[in-house]
Amino acid sequence: MSEKPTIEAYLKNIEEGHFKAYKCVDCGMIIAPPSGSCYGCGSSNMKWAEVSGKGKLVSFTVIHVAPDQFAEEAPYYVAIVELAEGTRVSARLLGFDPLKPEQVRLGINLKLDYEKGKSGATYLAFKPA
């Protein structure tokens, strides 16, 4: 946990099912996805932070027309999720019928999960808490 975080390691953590955020050493702000400088104080001094995995749904869409590498997975949800720690991430949303998006309510509680895509990659994901 003491090494300087990198984007490569951030993506590898997701791939391995162990999501970690960045944390600003100087002001404590939690940051994800990675940024080279803190949104709170401008510092570029970062370390890793474990997160609670709790979040809220901010907004979402259902992708019907997908790029080739994701075409087999469509339709699928992509959401903006606000973590309990305050930062927001883009992630797949699980646990809802992609053909009934009108049933999804913004603001609902979510918890961290992962999705193994047909492309072989593992995506950061959230499901209803």
Partner: peptide
């Protein structure tokens, strides 16, 4: 695929978020 280069490849496009998808998320909000 080419247009997707105008979105963040590492954190948005990599989970399958498309260009129309970005504006769809804004629309839902």
């Amino acid at each position: 695929e080419a247009l997707a280069a105008a979105a963040d490849d590492q954190f948005e496009s990599s989970i399958g978020l498309t260009f129309p998808g970005v504006f769809a998320i804004a629309a839902v909000a």
